[in-house]
């Protein structure tokens, strides 16, 4: 997925054992909670607030996520190691997937 030129934020962290990309909404409480969870557990990750980018660009990203993961796109939408995905923030699931 080409995210070139988009406002992707890179967060440093001591844990780099997973490649973590989060698609989120800047207005969403669960998205905020998910990012706080990653910070609190020391993960390095990247995130993109899709509500802050142009509609066509966002729709193309959502279309690619739907096609790749056969899932309707809700937020937060986490892509882990370019292979797994998590939709919505349920802490137990994120702990299990990320090995916390």
């Amino acid at each position: 997925m080409n995210l070139e030129g988009l406002p992707v934020v890179t967060k440093e962290g001591t844990r780099r054992d997973h490649d973590i990309m989060i698609f989120a909404l800047s207005t969403c409480g669960f998205c905020k909670r998910a990012l706080s969870f990653l910070d609190a557990n020391g993960f390095a990750y990247r995130y993109l607030y899709v509500d802050l980018i142009p509609l066509e660009t966002k729709n193309a990203i959502k279309q690619e996520l739907r096609e790749r993961f056969h899932e309707s796109v809700a937020f937060p939408f986490a892509v882990i190691d370019n292979e797994h995905h998590l939709v919505g923030f349920i802490e137990a699931d994120w702990k299990l997937t990320l090995g916390v």
């Binding site: 909404l25 207005t27 905020k32 909670r33 966002k58």
Partner: peptide, 26 residues
């Protein structure tokens, strides 16, 4: 959490013109 959601609702109203759910994309 409530404060985040109120902020989100307010920003959605002010940019879209209606209180779009803060956890749903337009």
């Amino acid at each position: 959490f409530y404060s985040t959601l109120v902020e989100g609702l307010m920003r959605n109203f002010n940019r879209y013109g209606y209180f779009l759910c803060p956890c749903r994309d337009t």
